[in-house]
Amino acid sequence: MSFTERITWTSLVVLPVVALTYFTVVLTRLADAPVDEVSWIVPMIWAIGTVIVGMIAGAIAQAIAATIASGGEEPDTEGDVRDKEIDRIGEYAARHVTSLGCMAVIVLAMLRADHFWIANGVFLAGLVGGVVSGIVKIRAYRRGF
């Protein structure tokens, strides 16, 4: 398994875990209070920070593991031409998902929806796009393209 594929697997762990945790917290609060009284900003900042830190920590851990596995040689963290092609394929797939999500958020803004729905709509679109990208990449790695 190449380093870039391992990073993709890391994203497929981090993103769903963060999404599940965040939306569990926020939707629980939404069930108990009107939408304009739900405290979502701090949880979202934590969620975004956790994704960033989680991906960086995952990359560092993978690099250390790869260095140990190669007997001390510096691992190839940039990937080769195939890794770059797979990355492009994944990002292209994600772009469709996030574009649809952003269109939905635009509609929410037109309808003057609460900031809660707009912000969480964008956040959800980004998370789903990231997961879709990861799935498409792993499929390309495992089954070819």
Binding site: M1, S2, E5, D76, G79, D80, V81, R82, D83, Y141, R142, R143, G144, F145
Partner: peptide, 17 residues
Amino acid sequence: GVTRQTIIAIEHGRYSP
């Protein structure tokens, strides 16, 4: 100048170089 995984993918028909 590629990874071993790329050579494996080529040999198994999962990647067209």
